[in-house]
Amino acid sequence: MNNVRNTLRQRAIKAAKKLENTEIIDGIELIYFRIESETYAIEAGVVSEVHKYKEPTPVPFTPAYIQGVFHMRGNFVSLVNLKIFLGIPEQNEKVATLCILFLSDENMEFGVAVDEVIEQKRVSKKEIQTLTAGFDLPRADLILGVMENGVIVLDGKKLLADPTMIVHK
């Protein structure tokens, strides 16, 4: 009981604080998510929805990073395995994939399988440092930058506009 009271108190203190996010003027809204042990972020503008993970229907003759398709409110949406797509090396411990991040703009819509959606946060654009040349990820052009705490920020618009995503053409 004492533990529960303590938690409630801490919550009250947090609620009483002023909102820090609103003070960042030149900011960007980011959704943080985790794939295996690594934390990534993506602009909140391109994320239309977060959904609980469900197994997609595999489609034959598609690249390995297309895990399959599933039905989403009247539309067929493809599910992209970001690990394969970005060329992130496989790790030994398999962690259950829990969430799907839906990215969309006026032209394109697809889901991204992630292990966990952590939070949404507003950060200053200055915090995001662009990548220097020679970064060893194969699709470094899809990465907006890296933050000081090591979070990799993906460029959602480029990801949506990437030609390799369009499979059947």
């Binding site: 929805e49 977060v50 969430c99 959606v117 939070e119 949404q120």
Partner: peptide
């Protein structure tokens, strides 16, 4: 938690 994230996305 997921619902909260969705809510914040909607808020943005």
């Amino acid at each position: 938690n997921m619902l909260a994230v969705n809510a914040s996305i909607e808020a943005v």
